[in-house]
Amino acid sequence: MGLVYVAPVMLVLLVVLILPAGFAIYYSLLKLQSVRPVGFAGLENYQRVFSDPEMVEVLVRTLGFAVVTVALTLAAALVVAVFLDRLTTGRATAVQILVVLPWVISTIVGALLFRWFFVADISPGVYLASLLGLHIKPLTDPTLAMVTLILVALWRTLGFAVLILLAGIKAIPAEYYESATVDGANTGQQFRLITLPMLKTPLVITTVVLTMSNLNNVEAPLVTTGGGPGDATQILPLAIYQQAFTHFDFSGGVALASVALVLNVGLVFAYLRLARWSV
């Protein structure tokens, strides 16, 4: 009976997501002449891309980028959500719209606008900073470039995280706080002992979605830093894109993407297991 109810969803997912992923993995095992399959290659494509010593660096960098970005976004979103929770409904809605705005813009346009306002040499951001005596060129320095990339990712996904966390905070029964106040717990203790534990599910959801989004998004790094300077901001999704679209190594690109796909799925389950989250 239940199977009938879930069948349409499963069918759509099968056709749109699962079979294409399977086909991609199959395709990564083929020998390609540009895009055209001309034979079977086995793991040759994988060997080729992973024999590149830079690949290890890219993976490590990607991991660092994702961990820092997700942690920062969660922390910032928690602060904003707690703040929004204390506002009256009208004000909260207004501020909420401002916070959510960057998230509802398409990534390419958003990243372009972010760069156009904060980073480009003739941007208002750089100009205003120079008025304050700060002559920064954010993308010239490798470390600052990574910081910029992280800030773009933060800016782009903050709204989403705030929404989910705010919903979680609002769902916590007010009585919990009342009795805590009676017991003499201060605000900090209440946050630590009630808010955080009660936010487990929203935090899990947000972490999973943010991690996946940052591990797969090509547009933001492509538009903001292009991987440079040097290889300072070369992260996995960009490397996959460039393998296929700049170097025209489609088989290598698909091999990398397949590995990323399997890693992503594995990561989600590992994370859910870690959070002891169950259906």
Partner: peptide, 19 residues
């Protein structure tokens, strides 16, 4: 020295801005 990270697009915009 910040030419290391300029894209061609940035360059045309700087040119347009007289920099």
């Amino acid at each position: 020295d910040d030419s290391v990270r300029l894209t061609a697009e940035d360059l045309y915009e700087l040119f347009s801005a007289g920099q």
